[in-house]
Nucleic acid binder design. Structure first.
Lengths: 174, 174
DNA sequence: TGCTTTGGGTTGAAGCATCAAGTAAAGTGG
DNA sequence: CCACTTTACTTGATGCTTCAACCCAAAGCA
């Protein structure tokens, strides 16, 4: 734990930049979504993940896992989304203790109209700044870091292996 | 703006991972600081930046710039830090409308005792996952992205060029 | 000198996240 | 089949962040 606590110069440089990006990038993306759609990045992601799921339906805990949040956070957010009429909650017929969240048609429409602008902003802020090599560096580095975060999550078919399922519907992700 | 809104597969993969890291990494770092020091990442950063400044003193707006925050946010946070006795605020002698924040001795002590654990966590979550090439990729990619965020901030001697000033005191950064 | 504008900073209310506690259904051991 | 635990989820309080409004000092300028 304190075997080698300090960072060398290269690491320090990398860390400071990373910290700055972690502050500014989410703020910028949130600002765009707030301005254009009145949504948080998190609530948008929640809608988007539902929109990509066959049946547009997921149990709360599955949804929580795909958006990397606690159940508590998700519960609060879905309550708000439900009030807006974008999501409904119903007890699962299969098990008395699971609640499934379902994206309504209005919610789907919201995603459809929000996605292009958000995708454009992601492109503008990230990918316009990177060449192909940059993109693959980013993928590598983030994969490596993800491996150390939430190692449990890393185990259960890491949250990214959605690449593996038929995911051609680009309507939502960005 | 909607010239090429969609992301291709490689970009999408990179983006999903980046989004996951942006969610999980700050949460993990906050958790460590909260547990071990009762601090937010942001309040720690505020203290740390003051601790690295000669005189341990900065005008509020300068401090806001170095920690990438709004003045409002900083004001609230410094109010809390002041209540804890780690910072004081005083009107600047030089200009009637400037307030300078000063790190107290107790605040300095807090930074000293908090820094090693935080640095270790940063190392564990990020740098232990990367080889030298990974570290330099990370530095490149984040620099490129930073260039597109807050371009104004990028102009005014980008927030990272602290490398340029005598910054050998590793006590605070992590 | 008086009037407006800009810059630096604070404040209060409202929204969102987090944490601790709670409910209720489904297993599990005796 | 009855207590105990675990799983799935909700709720309420608390705290942090944001946003808009505000105050005061310093320039501009007429």
């Amino acid at each position: 734990m304190d075997d080698s606590p300090w960072l060398d110069d290269a690491e320090q440089r990398a860390w400071r930049r990373t910290a700055a990006v972690m502050t500014l990038l989410p703020a910028a993306l949130d600002a765009q979504l707030q301005r254009d759609a009145g949504l948080t990045q998190f609530s948008y992601l929640t809608l988007a993940m539902l929109s990509e799921t066959p049946g547009r339906t997921l149990p709360m805990s599955a949804l929580a896992a795909t958006v990397n949040s606690s159940l508590s956070r998700l519960s609060h957010v879905v309550a708000r989304l439900e009030q807006q009429g974008w999501v409904t909650r119903e007890p699962s017929p299969e098990s008395g203790r699971v609640t499934v969240a379902r994206l309504t048609e209005a919610g789907m429409e919201k995603v459809r109209e929000t996605a292009p602008g958000h995708a454009a902003e992601v492109r503008r802020l990230i990918f316009d700044a990177l060449d192909d090599e940059g993109v693959s560096s980013l993928a590598c580095v983030t994969a490596a870091i993800l491996g150390r975060l939430d190692p449990a999550g890393g185990m259960r078919a890491n949250p990214l292996s959605r690449e593996a399922h038929p995911d051609d519907d680009r309507s939502a992700t960005g």
